[in-house]
């Protein structure tokens, strides 16, 4: 059985928020909740600005699941972490344990009234027999129809990949090799920070061409 994962290629993400919009549209989440978000680090700083699209990572050892007082989370055969909204009491513990800020609540009311937690389902719906009810509670179930999450499908630069972990890491590895990294996707320790081999060569070529 495939192990589903997201992967965001930060060298491709252009912070268009297309994935955010696609997700919101596919899942019709409640007002104020966006299951996916794009975080831009060093925004506006030339040479170090990086954008990354992030949602639930569907962790192997999920912290949300470990701290949930009602045990509403369950792992699927594809390695996804889904949850049962009927069991959710809105205590907020998953939000405090999750490193990625994936669980969100529609309310932040007095006396701990938060409503039911909502998070990315990898477009795999939730535990509900009736498809209409499932869509209303958990959003789209695209996986059931053999489709991948809409965020990744709609990504304009194919920075965001979703699917079988082996396959998407193969795609990413191919890109890394093409880019000329010496030691993996996160850049080379021996090189000037901010410039990959390919970028370095291209920059030098451009500079030379301009000077000649």
């Amino acid at each position: 059985m495939a192990r589903m994962k997201f992967l965001c290629d930060s060298e491709r993400c252009i912070e268009c928020n297309g994935c955010v919009t696609a997700c919101k549209n596919a899942n019709e989440t409640e007002w104020g909740i966006q299951r996916r978000r794009v975080v831009t680090l060093d925004d506006g700083e030339v040479g170090s600005e990086v954008s990354i699209s992030v949602a639930c990572m569907h962790c192997s050892d999920a912290p949300c699941m470990a701290v949930c007082p009602t045990d509403c989370f369950y792992p699927t055969e594809e390695g996804l972490i889904l949850h049962n909204k009927d069991l959710c009491i809105g205590c907020g513990y998953c939000l405090y344990a999750c490193p990625f800020g994936a669980p969100q609540f529609p309310k932040q009311g007095a006396l701990g009234a938060r409503g039911k937690m909502d998070k990315c389902t990898f477009c795999a719906g939730g535990p509900e027999e009736d498809p209409a009810l499932e869509e209303q509670k958990y959003g789209a179930n695209r996986l059931k129809d053999g489709k991948l999450p809409l965020c990744a499908e709609m990504c304009s630069t194919k920075a965001l990949l979703a699917g079988d972990a082996q396959e998407i890491s193969d795609i990413f590895r191919e890109r890394v090799v093409y880019r000329g990294h010496e030691d993996g996707g996160w850049g080379s320790l021996n090189k000037e920070p901010g410039l990959t081999d390919l970028a370095q060569q291209a920059a030098e070529l451009a500079t030379d061409a301009a000077r000649s």
Partner: peptide, 28 residues
Amino acid sequence: LMQSLPGVTSDYWRNVEGGSSGTTTSNS
């Protein structure tokens, strides 16, 4: 070129692992 292929170095990821913050449109 530096803008389109920015600095995704290991130092960078060390900062992210340390909890560095950025900007986002999400209000959560």
